[in-house]
Design a protein around this nucleic acid. Sequence first.
DNA 1: GGTTAGGGTTCG
Length: 795
Amino acid sequence: MAVYVLSEGAGPGSQVPSHLTRIPIAGLSPSSDFTNKTVKGKVIHKGPLVTVEAGDFILKSVIHEEDAMQSSCSQKTSINIIIFGALAENFNHTVSQGDVVLASGFIVGKSPTANKDKLHSCNLLLSGDDACIYVSKQKPPDPRCQLASKRSSLSCPEDPRSVKAPKYTYVRLDQLKTGTVVNVYGVVTFFKQPFKSRGTDYCSSLKITDQSNKKIGCTIFCEMLEEHPTIFQTGDIVRMHRVKVQLYNKSFTLINTRGFSVVTFDGSVGVAIEPRTSSSTFHFDDSDRRTVEELRSWSASQTLLPSVSAAVPLSAVQPNTYFDLTCQLLAKASVDTTCTLLRVWDGTRCPHTLLKVIVEPNVTEGPSSFSERKESHIANVLVYDNHVEFARDLKPGAFLRIYNLRAIPGSSKVPGLTSSQPVEVDHLAFHLHGGTSYGRGIRVLPENTPDVQELKRIMEAFSDDEEDDVSEMNDSELLEVWSTPPEFLDGDAVDCQTVRTCRHRLQPVTLSQVKQSDPSQVHHVRVQLRSYQPHRLHQALKLFCSKCASIQDIPDDELVALIFSEASKHSKACSRPPWALAGHVDLPAGTSGCRSVYLSPRLMIPGRTDQLIFLMGCTLEETCQLAAAYPNIIPVSSSGGQLALLDLSAPCLFRGKNRYYGCKRCSEAALREPSPEGMEGINERTIAKDLGVQLLQSVLLMKLELQDATDTLDVFLWKHAELFFSVAAEDVSANQEAQNRIRQAMDILCPAEGSNGERPWLDLCLMAYCTEGDERKNQTCYQICNTVVVKPTSK
DNA sequence: GGTTAGGGTTCG
């Protein structure tokens, strides 16, 4: 007694046991013997599953013989079939209307409904061990059927793997149509952990992209947390079924609809494809596997996608940065109603002195003290507001990822019972601010994730015994390991000047192996830096347009100064735009005179009238001086009697020491009145939007020559350059400290010829990819990814 | 069945 699903396309006949013979429906009569006989028909009606008593069922169906054997129009070729017991339940799960079935082991009875339904005068009764139904799926059935096929362990007698589940079709993100319900695949470029909405559900917010390069926002409302996407980091791949395409703010958004389901995969090339889903019905076949692999490979080659991970180990945390921390919770304590202390570690030691928070032992969950050495590896994380509720459910021992954690230097203002720790410059405090901006939140990581496995490996190697520490090795030992070719080194034995922040579980390879590998792969290497370009680090700073992907040098100051002086020559009285108010601003002391400015009356809010000024007739030098006093300056000049923006070769905006440029190709720049809504949180993005300017982004671009015992290799440092140096590219142009940080890092990684410094070994994650441009088509390039320079521990 | 939100850092 079973329902067998036959493989697609083979036709029911080919996989049915050969001792069975098919007979026509029309010729059935109650008296005959039907041992080893079958009838075949399409299911034209499928009744509900009726429970007679617990575990006993009846189901009525009608099949129609389409390729009627020896039949004429007048003959009855549709017949009722009544199925009993577990077979009925099985049939209900497996068979859909439209399927073609072949039944055997039946009894033929007299149909009591023949007069009413005008069907065959007989019916087929299927019950007991002899009854059998072979199904040939004719169309994609309700996806819920897959659950049934798993539960009831349906199989085809010849080949269990031939059970074909329906094939879903997936819409590329540039093919979305408003109002349709679609299935999609995408690489996550932004996400928020589910947070409580004002309604009844939790809300997940994410943005995804695919090979079409379209970025689509998605909003998922589900009451149950487990129904939400299980996203651990940007770069993860999601597959969503039954999301509706809506238009919001002229952009498509995807929102879950009835029957929504989502599966998430790790997005890294080379990591096992393990679906993360709460859905027990989910379907995954070779074509899904292919899709995931293609998206991984494509994503790895995209320099425009956000960093694969913002994850930084405690050993590489820099003050004044936001980062993601993968860690284990050791203990926690409620500080007050809006703040909870999480004591965490990741097995590495932060070179900065960390803030100490003292709480009473009786409010601490988990151990209230640790060995001195372990204590030095523990970070105190203060989580606020909405995160307090989430933290309440966390258990010591859990593995966590804390998103958008902020490292604040020198802060001693901590609520509750704190030590009277003096404010020292090097003290670092970790805050998870309230809200969900930038995906702020906490997620518990399951034990089987690669990240947690890696964490455990590091933690197991941790010893409370100070002597075991590698840093305690004497110089001659260090010299010995440093002069050993990298392929002979144990992965952890050397103090490396860099650490990888990725989760690829890859064995390090040599550069010669890298060169022999296929492109679109990720490699881990241990190398030295032989040389790098440009040596004048300010030349490493470029301007990048995220819209047209062009990259250009930062305009030379002389050129910019020339544009300003030319513009100021032509700055005579001109008609002001109807919305603007005209005024004057005094030049800084030491220079004489004053200059025309224009203001928007929308900004004439007490206390903030000078938030944004349009400045006319100033030299570059004067503008820079005024930028110290006015937070936002837009240089303008007179053009044809009208007030106009300067040529986009010059900065379109000064904000303090920062200058912002627009893309000439992608901007439709014009002087427009600032939008009032922008004034609440005025910044370079809101201003650029008002002016129609596509802002150029500061990026760092360097070429590094790597070497090991086997070969040398030129690689780029671009997409993850900010992570590598722990600086914001934007700061590099205006901030001496950021410039020094890069200079110092490069001096350590690649000491100048003749200096005493040894070239340190570097653990790097390298991404290989093919260039797509016409000129250098199919050339393999390499970029350093997921790698952070570690500063030597301050003595 | 309809609603929630619609990314863009902070009180600490």
